[in-house]
Design a protein around this nucleic acid. Structure first.
Length: 290
DNA sequence: AACCACCGCAACCGCTGGGGA
DNA sequence: CTCCCCAGCGGTTGCGGTGGT
């Protein structure tokens, strides 16, 4: 499969920020003719740009249906939930947020949400509590600030907090596993490939698809880690929604239809645990079950 | 006022996969 | 089946703005 000749090779093509008149030319042309083949757009529109650049400018900035401005709390929650299911599939995530572009969401994630999650001790990639030492040191710093006058050794506190968070998460996951074993609930995947999210403070997982996913179960706050509130406010943090264990396998989600009911719950578990083994090198699930 | 560090965002780069010849 | 073109995607970069010193 060949590569397209990069417009970077063409020294005559203009790069960098777009001028207002260039924008106008592009908008006028597309409004009149549609974009058709992007390669011919710059020629037809009288622009000294490559087609790729035109496409990007249009899709990320000039399109009339683009919603500008800050992301709302609801959008932020949705992005976090979708990311936990879809991983870095920005275009897929963008499809669930009308008026937002994949580029915008990607930037928002990398500049805001990612940092927010890291500060809260959550691995933004796996959406699981972090266990690395750097993070624990950060947590200890937070605790130093939050617990002025407290004589507790900050590092002890950090370890306790981290262990508590991990234990809480594991406890809930384990509880859910037991419920799954008992209820043997049929798979339930929405038609657009996005897992059903159940609003329930005492969650019973809705589905065990056979591709390594656990149903997203969203606590009533839809803000499991208290992202909208300060770190100190979360005395009794609500447990996080169950999210994908293997982000690498997330991309397969969209191809799954509704016909997931034929596989048994035990087969699903076997697969889940095997995928976890392959993905992590160690086994999160085996360890937890033990 | 000048400098610096950090942040957010627009744009670019390079890769991938679909589809036609 | 292979090659080529193209659109789309995700990661990265660089610039302008802003706040702190």
């Amino acid at each position: 499969m060949g590569r397209s000749p990069s417009c970077a090779d063409d020294a005559n093509v203009k790069k960098g920020p777009w001028a207002a008149e260039e924008d106008q030319k592009l908008v006028d042309y597309i409004n009149k003719n549609g974009h058709g083949s992007w390669r011919i757009v710059p020629k037809q529109a009288g622009l000294n740009r490559c087609g790729k650049s035109c496409r990007l400018r249009w899709t990320n900035y000039l399109r009339p249906d683009i919603k500008r401005g800050k992301f709302g709390e609801e959008e932020e929650r949705l992005i976090i939930n979708l990311h936990s299911v879809l991983g870095n599939k920005w275009s897929k995530i963008a499809a669930h947020l009308p008026g937002r572009t994949d580029n915008e969401i990607k930037n928002f994630w990398n500049t805001r949400i990612r940092r927010k999650l890291l500060n809260l001790g959550i691995d933004p990639h796996t959406h699981k509590p972090r266990t690395d030492l750097d993070h624990l040191l950060n947590v200890s710093q937070l605790l130093c600030v939050a617990q002025l006058g407290n004589m507790m050794n900050p590092l002890d506190a950090a370890f306790k907090l981290q262990a508590d968070a991990a234990q809480l998460a594991q406890a809930q996951l384990f509880q859910n596993l037991m419920q799954i074993m008992n209820t043997n609930t049929a798979a339930n995947v929405e038609s657009d490939g996005f897992l059903a999210l159940q609003e329930n403070t005492n969650p019973i997982p809705q589905s065990i698809p056979n591709n390594g996913f656990i149903a997203g179960v969203v606590p009533e706050t839809s803000d499991p880690w208290g992202l909208s509130s300060s770190f100190e406010q979360r005395e009794n943090p609500v447990l996080p929604g169950l999210v994908s264990i293997s982000p690498e396998s997330n991309s397969t989600m969209e191809n799954k239809g509704n016909n997931e009911t034929d596989s048994t719950i035990y087969e699903a578990w076997e697969k889940l645990i095997m995928e976890d083994d392959e993905a992590d090198g160690g086994s999160y699930w085996k360890e937890m079950l033990e």
